[in-house]
Simulated assay, not measured.
Amino acid sequence: MSAPDGEPVLRIGARDVARYAAGQDMAPTLSPRPYLHPVTTLDGVELTEILPEDHTHHYGVSNAVVEVNGTMFWGGKSYVHPTGYEMLDNHGRQVPVRTESGDHRIAEQLEWVDGAGAHVLTEQREILADLLPEHEAWALRWHSQLIADGGTDLALGSPATRGRVGAGYGGLFWRLSGENVLTTATVADGPDVDPLGNDTSPWLLLVQERSTGPVSLLLAQPRNSMLPWFVRTSGYVGAGPAVAWDAERSIAAGERLDLHLWAVLADRALTTAEATALYERLEQLA
């Protein structure tokens, strides 16, 4: 993996496993924001993609809250009830203010601004990478604090809060690569993942059958701050904790909201027993 000069790269030993891009060259209608891509397994299999034809605003792993006080940070069209999706002039962007990085850690302060450049909120972000040698895998942990420091309360929304049932997406989101690849999804309570995405579970296991062999992406979140999972395995593959699943989420002026997404990437098909053990390992790292 090669990275343009100055872009942070997470490494496990001698392996580059994730590149972090500032995203400021994204088209304004995509809600420019920093993102991770490519993110790979230890064997180099890419598990992210950007600019997919089906949803060009999906960018690897990113913090893509759909709406904050009317400003779009997900990118693309907005849901307008009851007519459907429309391209509105409401896109904001996340602007890096200060970035520190090393082989295993990226820490960044960002300013979220609306289309006119006015301050919406401040985010403090930390991304960590750890080798899990006993599992022949590696772990990625993303933690974002959204701080309502603009003097007003914040309301975070989604298409579901605008009237589209089952479309509560938005927040820390992982867009997987693998077009036309069989992907199975399992949660801690069993294999029957709700197609509408309102499972609340400490972990979500996605296994893909690639031409080079099976790969697994275990997504997880801390027990004390679990959100419903938004997950898609048909049409496209992507998942993440939904910050505004069926109702707006508020951040009072001066307060903050913590968002977490943990992941384990493995070059094999993980079993549910392994997923449970890996989740316990992630809790030890936290």
Score class of each variant (00 low, 15 high):
171 G>Q: 14
183 T>W: 15
174 W>N: 00
151 G>Y: 10
202 P>I: 01
166 G>P: 10
219 L>G: 06
219 L>W: 00
239 A>M: 04
160 A>F: 04
161 T>N: 00
148 A>G: 09
184 T>Y: 05
162 R>Y: 12
238 G>L: 07
143 H>L: 11
205 L>W: 07
236 Y>P: 02
161 T>D: 03
193 V>C: 13
136 E>Y: 05
180 N>R: 12
162 R>H: 15
200 T>N: 00
189 D>E: 14
249 R>D: 07
217 L>N: 03
240 G>M: 03
197 G>E: 00
136 E>M: 11
219 L>K: 06
247 A>F: 04
168 G>V: 11
208 Q>T: 04
185 A>T: 03
141 R>A: 13
209 E>P: 09
226 M>A: 15
189 D>T: 08
240 G>D: 14
148 A>P: 00
138 W>F: 13
222 P>H: 10
171 G>E: 14
226 M>L: 14
240 G>V: 04
176 L>H: 09
202 P>R: 13
144 S>V: 15
227 L>E: 01
185 A>L: 06
235 G>P: 02
195 P>M: 12
190 G>D: 13
199 D>I: 14
247 A>R: 15
236 Y>G: 10
181 V>D: 00
165 V>R: 14
230 F>S: 06
150 G>I: 12
229 W>G: 04
248 E>C: 03
221 Q>T: 03
188 A>Q: 15
154 L>W: 02
201 S>P: 06
166 G>R: 08
214 P>F: 09
186 T>Y: 12
171 G>L: 10
201 S>M: 07
254 G>W: 07
242 A>D: 11
204 L>K: 10
143 H>P: 00
152 T>K: 13
224 N>R: 13
147 I>K: 04
249 R>G: 01
246 D>E: 10
244 A>W: 03
172 L>T: 04
200 T>L: 06
194 D>W: 01
164 R>I: 14
178 G>S: 01
237 V>Q: 11
136 E>W: 10
195 P>I: 12
243 V>T: 12
229 W>Y: 07
249 R>E: 14
144 S>E: 11
187 V>N: 10
180 N>C: 10
184 T>N: 04
248 E>W: 10
165 V>Q: 15
142 W>C: 06
196 L>Q: 15
219 L>C: 06
148 A>I: 13
169 Y>V: 05
179 E>S: 09
